[in-house]
Computed example of a mutant assay.
Amino acid sequence: MKKTNVWMLFWALFVSSTVLVSCSDDDDDAMDQDKARVATFFQNAAQSDMFEIQTGQMAKVKGSTAEVRTFGAMLETDHTASSQKITTMAAQRNITLSPTPPAPKKAIIDRLTGESGLTFDKDFATVQVQAHQEAITLYETADREIMDTEVQTFIDATLPILRMHLQHAQTLKTAVDRM
């Protein structure tokens, strides 16, 4: 009887340790996946900010209406602040961010560079609606998928600003489209 109890105890300890090792591996996999999601999010969010900063700066100078110039200044200010936070958090996690916007965004920047007057204002407003819809989708997806609490806090603080920018861009688009 004692031999049976000893073997049962040994077997229970073996199974328990196997389960713990398996859970530990699952935790490591989840952490690795979260790190990859954070890196991808920071890359995309940084590029989004870069685009907003550059187009905002353009709007401050090239906008033919006060509303476009004011919105451009707001974008530059808000996205510069966001970009600084992303850069800091990425550096803390040893994530290297791309210094250039992706090709499709670069093409839009180049197009806007060649425009002026009301043509610029209308294109800028349209671009901002689309860019902020994309940014909100990026942040909402990250909000659902990322477990890193510091990144979650950043996302939760930034989403309302992006939604406000989208609303402002939609109002601006309606106004300049009537001109």
Rank of each mutant, 00 (worst) to 15 (best):
H165N: 07
Q152E: 11
S82Y: 08
M50G: 05
Q92D: 06
V38W: 02
L162N: 02
Q133T: 09
D26F: 07
S82A: 14
P99Q: 09
M8S: 09
M89S: 01
P104F: 01
T141M: 12
D34L: 09
T70S: 15
V68S: 07
L9P: 09
Q133K: 08
T88D: 10
T80W: 09
L97R: 06
R178S: 15
D49I: 01
V6W: 02
A39F: 00
F14I: 08
K62W: 06
A66W: 11
T137K: 14
A81I: 05
K60W: 02
T87R: 11
D143N: 08
V38Q: 08
E145V: 03
S17Y: 04
E115I: 01
N94T: 12
R111A: 10
Q167H: 10
S16Y: 01
M8I: 12
E140F: 02
I155W: 06
A131Y: 05
T141Q: 14
T18F: 15
K3M: 14
V176M: 01
A73Q: 03
F10M: 08
R111T: 12
A107M: 06
Q33T: 15
A59G: 12
E134I: 00
V21E: 10
T141V: 10
Q167I: 05
D110T: 13
M164K: 08
Q152H: 13
D143H: 09
T96Y: 08
A103H: 07
E52A: 14
A175I: 04
M8F: 13
T18R: 00
L159C: 10
T87D: 12
T65H: 02
D177T: 11
T141K: 12
M50N: 09
N94Y: 07
A30Q: 14
Q54M: 13
E67V: 00
A36R: 12
E150W: 15
D32Q: 13
T88L: 13
V68T: 01
I86Y: 03
A36K: 10
Q152I: 09
T119I: 12
I86A: 02
R111W: 09
Q152F: 10
K105D: 06
S24R: 03
M8G: 12
V129W: 00
K85N: 08
D29V: 12
M179Y: 14
C23Q: 14
V68L: 08
S24I: 00
L13A: 15
R144E: 08
S24D: 10
V151C: 04
T141E: 15
R37E: 12
D28V: 10
L118Q: 04
A81E: 10
I146D: 07
V15G: 05
D156K: 14
S64P: 05
M179L: 15
A36V: 12
S48K: 01
Q128Y: 03
D121K: 07
D123H: 13
K62Y: 07
N94I: 06
